[in-house]
């Protein structure tokens, strides 16, 4: 398990490596891969569920990092957040694109998903220093779950409503109000 870090004061090593990728340094892409491919597969699994799809996502992400490293702007965020943005977009694309249900071979994971254990786990693992954790704590548990299901599992409004067993309009309103509350708390 990887300990969550916020680390806003440390040097953004990943940003440096991404900049080197933009200059055509393959060894820097390899270094990014060494450091982040494991956590990325784990994060992709939470969205696409299946191991081979998660690896497909990570494959695509590293290809995109290589091709678009030049568009990374450290002024707009840290290297890791940039990489995981690409990861979530790609994973959610695959999830939304799959007209069928994505079955998982792993029964334990299916059960964990059904009990919202995946998102609970993500929430529990947020570091104590995380402002996000502190502010999520202030949300009513089901509303908190709505936000987490969107970010961690990549669910749509409709899927969140089904998972929380509430009408679609309620799920949408909960998330909107949660975002307002989070924004005020995080400031």
């Amino acid at each position: 398990m990887k300990a969550p870090t916020s680390g806003h004061l440390e040097v953004d090593e990943l940003a440096t490596l991404i900049a080197a990728c933009a200059a055509g340094r393959r060894d820097s892409l390899r270094a990014l891969y060494e450091r982040e491919s494991g956590p990325m597969i784990g994060a992709a699994m939470r969205i696409v569920r299946r191991r081979e799809l998660a690896e497909e996502v990570v494959h695509d992400v590293f290809v995109q990092i290589w091709r678009h490293a030049g568009s990374f702007d450290p002024a707009l965020g840290r290297g890791r957040a940039w990489m995981f943005t690409i990861l979530r977009n790609r994973a959610i694309s695959i999830l939304r694109n799959a007209s069928r249900e994505l079955p998982t071979e792993d029964e334990a994971l299916t059960l964990a998903v059904e009990r919202n254990a995946v998102t609970d786990d993500a929430y529990d693992r947020l570091g104590d220093g995380s402002a996000l954790k502190r502010c999520l704590e202030g949300l009513e548990p089901k509303r908190r779950a709505g936000v987490l299901l969107a970010y961690v599992e990549g669910l749509s409004h409709g899927e969140i409503a089904a998972r929380l067993n509430v009408p679609l309009g309620t799920a949408k309103a909960w998330i909107r109000r949660s975002l307002i509350q989070l924004r005020e708390c995080l400031a």
Binding site: K2, T5, P39, V58, V152
Partner: peptide, 11 residues
Amino acid sequence: DLDATADAQAP
């Protein structure tokens, strides 16, 4: 912050 909360899995 949530990105780092998944179990890392060896590629």
